[in-house]
Design a protein around this nucleic acid. Structure first.
Lengths: 242, 242
DNA sequence: TCGTTTCCTTGACGGACATCAACAACTTAG
DNA sequence: CTAAGTTGTTGATGTCCGTCAAGGAAACGA
């Protein structure tokens, strides 16, 4: 695969140069040689909103880094009730190590760009590089922390608190669109009302009503259904029940 | 610390001989030499029901293996609402690697026996033994899977389904008391109604009513409040919504 | 023995959220 | 342009589960 040499990036594959995963993500654990080896079998691609990433056969044997966009992980009961069990933002890792088939579905909720590689390559590298395994362990621990926080939200918070918690979660994970004000924050919601409902264990009607309430009470502003401005983060945090 | 030699267990510390964690738990990753090193700083102890394991100062700097009994991990909102975010059975590992302070409380819900060691020792061994880190990663991934399954239960199941799911969870993790029948299963509930409610995001009254309903419908029998007999596991699984 | 506490069950009632339904604002196809 | 589909909002109504209250059963200490 492509690669070039220059003063500052000797030996790093071109594919990886501007890649966020190389800094904050898993690939940060690899030295230039390993990056080259991995990039030989890796492929970068852009998928549209709604694309199924895991559940279809193609990707079961591949791991991916999320480079941009948002991916939802869902589980579905036999009768169709659905729950989002995780949201992956860049530079998160996608795929369940040490397991052949996935117990969840993964679907792009925005346009998503991915860098993916064969399972076998990653697992071989993990044996050579303890640092890679360490990063994977750390990311898994972080996801476990997040899942447990969300258990509290689903189990013990009211609908109003759930919606406020959701807005704060997104605000923390999406790069805000401009604004130097530390009290306020603006961003585009990556999820539809239906996805938000599936994330919060509510119906779309309840989500809509709670957003309306936050709007009429002056805590947030909503434009074009998707763009949200939080006027006072601290105040919204109080509404989130913690 | 104590150790002895014999034909079958040369060099394995006496402390570890009959230990379940040495087979299915983390210590299975260690060779006899490492076991000896670890056992020099490890201490085994029995704690009574209700003992706080994490949250008190003593244990923050120690990791533990659960050797028997059940530990609940809880989170609490500012106003006191509580949610159990995990149950640890033998031979689970207790403690959050790479983090100084815990974001949760851990409390014994039965008499619990623990084997604990200093954080520093474990983290040093992890660097030497990739196999140890691998086991820790695997256990963390398993806990993440369980937490995500529970998100579905909290977010999308009815009270009746939640209680049925809970009984099945316990049945899977507690050694059943005798009985060769594969359809039925009997065990003692390790949790009070209040704990069950905190696990399911319900009130104790609702838990009690749902248990009564399962009882009157002939799916289970309950003796002395704690002892449960599931008559037909498959039928209960259908009640659990999957 | 009795009182106290803890744990659990059961009933009556109300409220938070789901369900059902109508409609508005956009988008896309023809 | 109109028609049809998608996405979101709002209102009316119902229901599941929380809240409040009373009381039984077992454990424990005085």
């Amino acid at each position: 695969m492509l690669q070039r040499r220059d003063v500052h990036n000797s030996d790093i594959p071109a594919l990886c140069h501007a890649c966020e995963a190389r800094h904050r993500g898993l690939c940060g654990a690899l030295d230039p040689q390993q990056l080259i080896a991995l990039s030989k079998t890796s492929s970068r691609r852009e998928v549209p909103t709604g694309a199924e990433l895991i559940g279809e056969a193609e990707l079961v044997e591949r791991y991916s880094n999320v480079l941009s966009g948002v991916v939802k992980l869902t589980k579905t009961l036999k009768d169709g009730r659905q729950q989002i069990v995780g949201l992956q933002f860049a530079p998160d890792f996608l795929g369940r190590p040490f397991k052949a088939e996935s117990a969840m579905n993964a679907e792009a909720v925005t346009t998503v760009s991915l860098c993916s590689f064969p399972k076998a390559t990653v697992e071989r590298m993990m044996k050579e590089s303890p640092e890679l395994e360490r990063r994977l362990l750390n990311q898994t621990l972080k996801q476990l922390d997040e899942a447990r926080d969300w258990l509290v939200t689903l189990g013990r918070k009211t609908a109003a608190e759930k919606v406020a918690s959701f807005l704060l979660l997104i605000a923390r994970n999406i790069d805000p669109t401009g604004g130097s004000d530390t009290r306020s924050k603006a961003f585009d919601l990556p999820l539809t009302r239906s996805d938000i409902a599936d994330f919060l264990g509510l119906t779309i009607e309840t989500v809509s009503r709670q957003l309306t309430k936050l709007r009429t009470q002056g805590l947030i502003r909503i434009e074009n259904n998707r763009h949200v401005v939080i006027h006072d983060i601290a105040r919204l945090e109080r509404r989130a029940g913690q």
